Simulated scan of single mutants.
Amino acid sequence: MSLVITSSTINCRSFSLSRPFPSWINGDNSPSLLGEIPAAFSRRSSAIFLTRVSCAKNPDDYHSTLKSLNSRGRFPRKSLGQHYMLNSDINDQLVSVADVKEGDFVLEIGPGTGSLTNVLLNLGATVLAIEKDPHMVDLVRERFAGCDKFKVLQEDFVKSHIRSHMLSVFENRGDQDFALAKVVSNLPFNISTDVVKLLLPMGDIFSQVVLLLQDEAALRLVEPALRTSEYRPINILVNFYSEPEYNFRVPRENFFPQPKVDAAVVTFKLKHPKDYPDVSSTKSFFSLVNSAFNGKRKMLRKSLQHLSSSPEIEKALGVVGLPVTSRPEELTMEDFVKLHSVIANE
C-alpha cells in the first residue's frame, strides 16, 4: 500500500456550532463579503450543515466551508495565501488524479477547514497535515477528533523538518510492505515554489506530489518553452527530480475569496534517487545551473567564468555539441547534465 499525507483532519463526533452566523451567510441583503463569492454558489440552498461522523462521510460544500470558518470567526488571510475550496467535486478530482486508495499514507499541506482531508479519509487513507494557522489547526483537530487515521501539526511547512517527520512515520508503522507516501494538497498559493523545491528531491519518501497551484505557475513549471523568459532554474529542478504533468484547470470562481487568477492541478511523478540524471554531485550541478541563470542575458562563457576560463567553457560547450555563444535559456536539462559532466572532469 502507499502512504498519503494531507492537510486536513477528520472529526468523528456529531457537533453543533455555537457562534451565530453573520447576516451575509444567512442570506439577507446586508453589506458583506458575499460579493466575492461566485453567484452560482450564492444561489444554492441556504441550508448549512457540517457533521462529524466516523471518520468522514458527508462531502464539504459551499455552505459547510463557510460555516466552518465562521465557527472560529475566521476570514482568509492574504498573508498566508488562504483561498478555500468551495466545490467538493474539485477535491474529488484532485484525489482521483492522485489515485488515493485505502491504506495509502498522504501528506497534506494547509488543510484549512479539512474539506480535502475529509475526502482522503473517506477513501481510507491515513493523513498527516501540516498547517501554519493555529485557528485552522484547532478547527481540524476538533472536526476529526477520535479519528486515528488523522494527525495535524502546527508548523510552517517551508521551515518544517518534513523528512524527519516522514522517517518517524515509516519507523512507527513497523511493517515495511507498503509503497511510498503521497502528497496531495490544495496549496497556499504563496508558498508553491518553496514547496516544489522542498518535496521534489524526496523521491525516496514520496511516489508523487499532486498539487493545486495557480494556473500560471503550473504552466511555468510544466510547460516552459526554451528561449523564453519563463524558462528558469526551477524548470531544470522539476525535470531532474520528476516527471511533471498538467492535469486540469480550476476556474477561480471555485474559491473563497476568489483569487485574481485560475488554478490548476499538477502531478509530479517523483524519480527515485537511483534514477536521477548521472551527475557527480547534485549540489555542484545546481550551483552551475543557478550561476548560468544569474547571468541570463549573458552567454555561458561569460556567466560561468568563476568555474572555468572562457576558452575552457567554450571547449566544454563544443564537446557537448552546443554553440559557443549559447545562453542558459537555450539548454535543456539534459544539456546542463552533459555540460556539468565535462566541466567537472576538467
Rank of each mutant, 00 (worst) to 15 (best):
V127A: 15
M1R: 11
S280C: 11
F256Q: 03
L300K: 06
F21H: 03
N190G: 02
L120A: 14
E230A: 14
L211T: 05
E216A: 04
E243M: 03
D89C: 02
E142G: 09
Q208F: 04
A292C: 10
V209W: 05
S32R: 09
V196W: 10
N70H: 13
L339F: 07
D335P: 00
P38T: 01
F248E: 12
A39S: 15
G35P: 01
A40L: 01
Y241H: 13
I343C: 07
A263Y: 09
F285E: 02
V266N: 08
G146L: 00
P257M: 01
S168H: 06
S192T: 12
T325R: 09
V97K: 11
G321D: 05
T282E: 15
S14I: 04
S18Y: 07
L219A: 06
L121H: 15
D278G: 07
S326H: 07
L187F: 01
E230F: 09
E131S: 00
T9R: 13
L199R: 10
I236K: 05
H83S: 10
K159G: 07
E230H: 13
P259D: 07
N247E: 15
V137D: 05
L180D: 06
V266L: 06
K151I: 03
R52I: 11
V137I: 07
S160E: 12
L86Y: 06
K260G: 09
E155W: 03
M202L: 15
T9S: 15
L180C: 00
E142W: 13
N247C: 15
C12F: 07
F189I: 02
P38K: 10
